[in-house]
Design a protein around this nucleic acid. Structure first.
Lengths: 112, 112
DNA sequence: TGGATGCGTCGGAGTGCATTGACATATCGA
DNA sequence: TCGATATGTCAATGCACTCCGACGCATCCA
């Protein structure tokens, strides 16, 4: 859990990356270019770099279709780890923190 | 919410700071020296600097007593903001994420 | 009152990371 | 096949942050 937690917050430590995650959360699936168009504070190259970090750390999923690459949140990945971490420290202090949502209901563990 | 969210993840972006928060979550209240003793990868000065960041960003509360300063999590502060952020992006994607705990009224929340 | 303890802050050295333009690769359309 | 589009990657640059020793201030104890 320690390693995952570090990975998770590394991914979340950058403002642009959080912005990307928020967009993906809102839209579901977006291409790299679409994301870059929505965030005009940085260029396409920068977005691409951040997508690499998010991909490597397990925060987003990439789906290829022709020359497009669609990105979406990986809700079983690092975002969930970060959620779990915050949950755990709040839990110890309050003792009444709810669980993360049941994620497995939408994709029946295709990996196998 | 944007500003708070940035503050929150800035505070959480460092491994030592997360370590400190975890200790505070586990122990409830600790002095700066106690925290430094529990984290031997860095010195007391470093811990003090991180505590400053955590204090400034609203992640921890400081209570003074004589020459000691006791730190504890501020569960209505940035930790909660970070929780809320993750919640919101997971919410949009899953639509089934529970709320953070009610910090101020936890006495009434009798879990059935 | 004088020494010890707890703790914050300052200044500087070292390090890591974000950003970007240029370039490479693969796919689409005519 | 030829150009346009979508996207990743590389190398260089500059900034921001971490870490620590030294110092200062307040508090406690004898």
């Amino acid at each position: 859990m320690e390693a995952n937690e570090n990975l998770a917050f590394d991914a979340l430590s950058d403002r642009v990356r959080r912005r990307i995650l928020a967009e993906l959360g809102r839209e579901g699936e977006l291409t790299a270019t679409e994301i870059a168009n929505r965030i005009d504070s940085v260029g396409r190259t920068t977005v691409s770099s951040h997508l690499r970090v998010l991909r490597t750390s397990g925060a987003v999923i990439e789906r290829r279709d022709g020359r497009n690459r669609y990105y979406s949140l990986d809700l079983d990945g690092t975002v969930r780890d970060a959620f779990a971490y915050l949950q755990s420290i709040m839990n110890r202090a309050v003792g009444d923190v709810p669980d993360a949502p049941e994620q497995g209901t939408r994709n029946e563990r295709e990996t196998g």
